[in-house]
Design a protein around this nucleic acid. Structure first.
Length: 596
RNA sequence: GGCCCCGUAGCUCAGCUGGAUAGAGCAACUGCCUUCUAAGCAGUAGGUCCUGCGUUCGAAUCGCAGCAGGGUCACCA
């Protein structure tokens, strides 16, 4: 590609002219700002001191030398210390020919024998349905998987279902007490929502008990511990770990309700996994590890029987790994699943897509794994993403301020349907096709809205304002794709344009060049986005591509072009853009329509 | 209180390893559909880049201090 050629040429010219020893990679090349003429800019200030030259003179000499060595350079100009190179149109045209019918442009091949990168995401608890926070997690996990795959890495997606623990016992207990045998069938409720209902129910009664105890004069702390419901839930967890059959069978029944519900939601979101782990199968391995740690002397047991890891020497606290009653905690099972996963996959990297509220947890996890003697601990990478906030703050499931995933998707589908009906462009489609389109646009809007924000940052979602379909949005890009496909259908069908035929040279104008330049950047952007684990970079780039195309489309008649060779070039340019958009949107997990 | 993250237009967000006059979208206001899909295009208006000091030829970007917001420090997950 031209960038590295330019860097090399600049570095060697600096050496020839002034004897400077500059690494080609260190030459900073930036895109020329649009108010100046040129394509790539080299800032010469960093070299003036060593070269003992005035910036402008240096830039001119450098420009001359580089232009002589690189035939791709048509021209250059100097403004202050800025050296702007203009690339010859023959380069862009040649590039257009290369990509015109390349279906996988920008994507790298995957070596399926390579050690995989195992990415865990979703990781739901089975006591309540998925909400907006989970949506961000799922969309990020899926998209980063696609992004790494696009970059040639062998990706395995895994889900760790947190199917055991005190939380599910709470739902179980509440269902036993207040459920009257209610089932998804009897109530017509989605399984995960039904179990979630009893989790809320538990909390309500639990709070009443606390209140009652406090009225009798008990301290809040103590009341929380001694409330009968809580005591019973803990007993239930103990019985579960002891394998009590009655408890286990209830647990299985309710979890299966939840799984059926989750599967439906995953399907609607368009995410899937190569392997699903259940903590009920892995926590015992975690307990073994704790025993190993005790034997090794890196963990210690307190008088009450609880097991801890002392991390004060690493500037952290002491961390509990086993309760005094012997039951395991979050960290225990995470140790076990990490080991299991490493054994099964021989992973090159272990990525965990988990919210930044757990930064501390993963810091500890890595250190404990190291101390247990696992040298692969360094392969653990916590892909830490920011919370989704509502206008009045954080979502709290117990306070009922959550945005439910299923509800949100349904609302989006309704909005999409309204938008389509308003425009009345799809009246010849049948209901099945329409529903498919509504779903595609609804998810396009939702996914783009969430993924375009830098994953590390907290983002705001306002339920009162529905997600936009205009401007910097998924549907805008989907629309751009649909318009392009429409042109191509007509070009091939009515005008008999062949996409395979190699076009002769033609001239290109500014708008066309902008589109080509944008496409030219695509492989580099995918690389950068993968390195940063940032679908947001893909989203913003795709938007720029669509915008550049629309600007070109607006004032370039394509199907009415008289010169057949030029029409062929324009159609092939369209084709390349549609492929680019399709591939980029696929990285975001967004489908693009042929019509809308 | 300790540690971590964050503060850019009325609102939601871009701005990569420091580089030219800080960009988009939404909202507001102007134009453009007998021409390939107007979910579009072109334009106007809107900024002490939280504040201060420092590093340098040059700082929204790096460092320090302060202010504001959030997270976390559970025998919850």
């Amino acid at each position: 590609m031209i960038e590295s050629k330019l860097q090399n040429a600049v570095a060697s010219a600096l050496n020839n002219l002034y004897g400077l020893n500059i690494e080609a990679d260190s030459v900073v090349l930036q895109k020329t700002k649009k108010e100046f003429s040129g394509d790539y800019t080299v800032v010469v200030f960093p070299y003036v001191k060593q070269a003992r030259k005035a910036p402008e003179a240096l830039a001119n000499e450098l420009g001359n030398a580089v232009a002589q060595n690189l035939h791709e350079i048509k021209d250059f100009n100097v403004i202050k210390g800025f050296l702007n190179f203009t690339i010859d149109d023959s380069y862009w045209l040649n590039f257009a020919n290369i990509i015109a019918d390349d279906k996988t442009f920008g994507l790298k091949d995957v070596d399926s024998n390579a050690a995989p990168v195992v990415i865990e995401y979703s990781s739901p608890n089975t006591n309540k349905p998925l909400h907006l926070g989970h949506i961000r997690n799922n969309l990020l996990g899926w998209s980063v998987s696609q992004l790494l795959t696009a970059n040639g890495r062998n990706v395995k997606k895994v889900n760790l279902v947190n199917d055991r623990g005190i939380h599910i016992c709470k739902s179980m207990l509440a269902w036993l007490r207040y459920g009257n045998g209610e089932t998804p069938e009897s109530s017509g409720m989605k399984g995960d929502h039904l179990v979630g209902k009893y989790y809320v129910e538990f909390d309500r009664h639990y709070k009443e008990e606390i209140k009652a105890l406090m009225e009798k004069g008990m301290e809040e702390e103590q009341a929380k511990k001694e409330a009968p419901l809580m005591v019973e839930a803990q007993q239930m967890l103990k019985r579960w770990e002891e394998g009590d059959e009655e408890i286990r069978s209830l647990w299985k029944k309710m979890n299966n309700w939840v799984y059926a519900g989750f599967d439906e939601t995953y399907k609607r979101m368009g995410v899937s996994f190569d392997k699903i782990y259940y903590e009920s199968n892995t926590y015992l391995l975690g307990k073994e590890l704790v025993q190993k740690g005790l034997d090794m002397g890196v963990l210690f047991r307190k008088e009450d029987g609880s097991v801890w890891c002392d991390l004060t020497d690493a500037g952290l606290d002491q961390k509990l790994l086993l309760r005094k009653d012997g039951t395991s905690v979050y960290m225990t099972q995470d140790l076990g699943t990490a080991l299991l996963r490493q054994r099964e996959f021989g992973a090159d990297q272990l990525i965990y897509v988990v919210g930044n509220e757990q930064d501390y947890h993963f810091q500890v996890l890595k250190i404990v794994l190291e101390r247990l003697g696992f040298n692969w601990a360094e392969k653990v990478y916590h892909l830490s993403y920011g919370m989704v906030e509502l206008p009045n703050g954080k979502m709290k499931s117990r306070e009922g301020t959550v945005v439910d995933a299923d509800d949100l998707i349904s609302e989006m589908e309704q909005t999409a349907a309204e938008m389509c009906k308003e425009r009345g462009k799809n009246e010849d489609m049948n209901q099945e096709q329409l529903d498919e389109l509504y779903h595609m646009l609804a998810l396009g809007a939702l996914k783009y809205f969430i993924l375009k924000v830098d994953p590390t940052k907290t983002m705001l979602f306002n339920p009162a304002e529905s997600i936009d379909f205009n401007g910097n949005t998924g549907p805008f890009i989907q629309y751009t794709h649909a318009r392009i496909r429409s042109i191509i259908r007509k070009a091939v069908g009515e005008k008999g344009v062949s996409l395979e035929k190699v076009p002769a040279t033609t001239s290109i104008n500014d708008k066309e060049r902008e589109v080509l330049k944008q496409l030219h950047d695509m492989p580099g952007v995918i690389e950068q986005a993968a390195a940063a684990y940032s679908p947001a970079m893909i989203a913003n780039f795709t938007y720029d591509l669509a915008k550049a195309f629309n600007s070109f489309y607006q004032d370039t008649p394509i199907l009415r072009e008289n010169d057949p060779e030029r029409m062929l070039f324009l159609v092939r340019l369209c084709n390349a853009v549609s492929t680019g958009i399709k591939n980029l949107m696929a990285i975001l997990g967004i489908d693009v329509p042929e019509r809308m």
